[in-house]
């Protein structure tokens, strides 16, 4: 990992928006090669990972994750001219959506931002996603992981509906399923037949990385 862009990692990790924006502008202006552009993106990924660590350690809170995701989005826009047609390399694929009947998406969007930063290709189905839409997308992109997010206690039941639909379509065994959101728990995970649950975006991302690296 190149030390050349360490200051970018640090700026993002410390949520220093001005420093990050300046560093990225300078890096882009220097006319980086395709490999260097990938290094810059990796520097951002490491910065976001560090943000996730600080969140797990109890230093950062969800408000900081939202801000980090916002800064990162701005950063990626600045880098867009440098990133080749092939895009950046991906470590895995995620299909994610809010559970049927659930219109909330802030937590899901934080998770998506962190997953993208970690190098996943993310297919976001949006909110209130019917089971057959999950099935359709999984058939189409053949992801490693399916994520179902929910804020309402109501969604705990509909998460089960999605997983059952995947089973019926013969797709369940080909993916790992993670359920996420405030009301999920181990008991719910067992009840609906998911592989993991997460109430914490950072640990959720870690689990997903473990799944694709294995």
């Amino acid at each position: 990992m190149s030390v050349k862009y360490q200051h970018i990692t640090e700026a993002l990790a410390q949520l220093e928006e001005e420093a990050l924006v300046q560093a990225l502008k300078d890096a882009v202006e220097a006319g980086p090669s395709a490999e260097e552009a990938q290094d810059i993106v990796n520097a951002c990924t490491m910065g976001m990972e560090r943000v996730g660590d600080l969140f797990e350690e109890g230093e950062y809170f969800v408000g900081d994750l939202i801000y980090a995701a916002d800064i990162l989005k701005g950063g990626m826009e600045l880098l867009a001219p440098c990133i080749g047609a092939g895009g950046v390399s991906k470590i895995g694929k995620l299909v994610i959506g809010s559970a049927p009947g659930d219109l909330h998406d802030i937590g899901k969007n934080i998770f998506i931002a962190m997953m993208e930063a970690a190098g996943f290709e993310v297919h976001d189905l949006g909110i209130d996603v019917a089971p057959d839409k999950f099935v359709e997308k999984v058939k189409e992109v053949q992801p490693d992981i399916v994520g179902i997010s929910g804020l309402l206690t109501l969604s705990l039941d509909t998460m089960g509906d999605v997983i059952n639909a995947l089973k019926q379509a013969g797709l369940r065994d080909g993916v790992k399923v993670m359920i996420g959101g405030n009301p999920v728990s181990e008991a719910v995970q067992k009840r609906v037949g998911a592989d993991a649950h997460s109430t914490n975006a950072a640990t959720g991302v870690k689990q997903c990385k473990e799944w694709v690296v294995a």
């Binding site: 949520l15 408000g63 939202i66 801000y67 916002d70 802030i106």
Partner: peptide
């Protein structure tokens, strides 16, 4: 909004 306040407290 939640996203709004989260970034407003920085900017």
């Amino acid at each position: 909004g939640f996203r709004g306040v989260s970034v407003d407290i920085r900017r």
